[in-house]
């Protein structure tokens, strides 16, 4: 029954958006981190999503074979990419992480950009949560036929 796989699809999106919000939170938390285990300042992280495709063939496959794995249309976080823009450099000669000329490299995190990204993740999460509610109601209605 395809109604149950819609729950799986929406669930995958909920997980992906939550992971995206986690990454944004990590970026904001580390907005001033100048030391990391890899050395140098923290680098901004970005979520990369990938869909499993909704081609007619995949829909057909998902309809006939539940062993085909993820149903067509699910989304997942495939990679956490690093932003390659250079770090922000500030002149702070007294800072313990300052280089020989007195400049400190700060993370390339822009709080405004992160907040916008966070809002996007929250809205997408709400959207998928309402899709879950709709699917749930439809399943409930089918069950009510038995009454």
């Amino acid at each position: 029954m395809s109604l149950f796989s819609t729950l799986e699809i929406s669930g995958s999106a909920l997980a992906a958006e939550r992971a995206r919000a986690d990454i944004v939170a990590a970026n904001l938390a580390n907005a001033e981190t100048t030391r990391t285990t890899e050395g140098g300042p923290f680098r901004r992280k970005m979520a990369v999503f990938s869909g499993s495709g909704t081609s007619a063939f995949r829909l057909l496959l998902a309809g006939y074979n539940r062993l085909a794995g993820r149903p067509a249309g699910t989304v997942r976080l495939v990679r956490v990419a690093e932003d390659t823009t250079p770090p922000v450099v500030r002149y702070e000669p007294g800072h313990p992480d300052a280089n020989a000329s007195g400049f400190v490299s700060y993370p390339n995190v822009n709080p405004i950009q992160e907040m916008v990204d966070l809002m996007g993740a929250v809205r997408a999460y709400q959207l998928n949560a309402s899709a879950v509610a709709a699917s749930k109601q439809m399943i409930q209605q089918s069950l009510d036929i038995l009454k």
Binding site: S2, L3, I9, S10, A13, A72, G73, T74, N128, A131
Partner: peptide, 21 residues
């Protein structure tokens, strides 16, 4: 009902992929 639920599945898939490039 079969057709409606197939369409519902596509709509949830579209919603799930709102941030997929």
């Amino acid at each position: 009902l079969g057709l409606v639920s197939a369409r519902h599945q596509l709509i949830t898939a579209n919603m799930a992929n709102i941030d997929t490039p």
